[in-house]
Design a protein around this nucleic acid. Structure first.
Length: 261
DNA sequence: ATGGCTTACAACGTAAGA
């Protein structure tokens, strides 16, 4: 089973690239962030024609999340239960026996700003909900754009970024609090090359220089971690013309002894 | 990157992203 998460930064613009990804990567489940589409214009047929079920929660201009899956999604959840938030940042469903929770964590803008406070309180509400999800599901994947680089090795220049939004201590503590629920960073289950990132600023040759951050993640419950066979960043879409500023992150799962994929 | 892009918007500059 292959699970991919990707912040597309406008599904309308990135749709051709996403269809290429579906053909070449053949994922079973795809979690999308920043679709920037209202639900009435979500391209349902484009995906159903290619064998994917869709679930989505969007709004105009900003945010928006979606799940694509080969199998029919069950137990669909839009938003964080009990959290009154007009921003469409959360969608969850059970597919292939895995509770897949897709998050688009607020950016936070700048340390100390109103949006930064919103980010931290949002993460706190998500943590409370995830605790319940982990208590009721053995196989859980919490995936998406977390807008947090968990460690200095996830930052191209820790000195330059020190204390900034995306790497600040309170954000990293909030990320660690999610791991403390019993989640593992799938990427770190495996030996990885140095300087692997999932986001690079547009322009300034940032991608060519690999001036990036690893802020997109796949977190897995301990049961699911035992089934995880690989977790990688797919750099290919970032090389395309008109790329998203984020690269997809891909994890493969299989039974013990089964080949990945 | 202290942003040097990119996206959306009844838009032609502004807000927001990360």
């Amino acid at each position: 089973m292959k699970l991919t998460t990707w912040n597309v930064n406008s599904l309308r613009v990135r749709l051709p690239q996403l269809l290429t990804l579906l053909e070449t990567q053949r994922p079973d489940i795809v979690a999308l962030q920043e679709t920037k589409l209202t639900d009435d214009v979500f391209p349902v047929e484009v995906f159903s024609e290619r064998g994917y079920q869709v679930a989505f929660s969007g709004q105009k201009t900003y945010n928006g999340v979606a799940l694509l899956s080969r199998q029919v999604p069950a137990g669909l959840q839009i938003g964080v239960p009990g959290l009154d938030d007009p921003q469409r940042r959360v969608i969850a469903a059970t597919v292939d026996g895995v509770r897949v929770i897709c998050l688009y964590v607020p950016n936070g803008q700048a340390v100390g700003s109103e949006k930064y406070d919103y980010k931290l309180s949002w993460l706190s509400a998500v943590r409370v909900w995830l605790q319940q999800e982990l208590a009721t599901h053995a196989r859980v994947a919490v995936v998406g754009d977390f807008n947090i680089a968990p460690e200095d090795r996830d930052v191209h220049s820790p000195e330059r970024w020190a204390g900034q939004v995306l790497v600040s201590a309170p954000e990293r503590e909030a990320f660690q609090a999610l791991l403390d629920l019993g989640l593992k960073d799938a990427f770190r289950l495996f030996e990885q090359p140095e300087r692997v990132f999932s986001w690079w600023n547009y322009g300034a040759l940032a991608f060519a220089r690999n001036w990036g951050l690893r802020i997109d993640h796949i977190l897995v419950s301990e049961t699911l971690a035992r089934e995880c066979r690989s977790c990688t960043v797919d750099l290919e879409p970032r090389r395309h013309e008109r790329p998203s500023d984020h690269a997809p992150v891909v994890a493969e799962f299989g039974e013990r002894g089964e080949a990945a994929g």
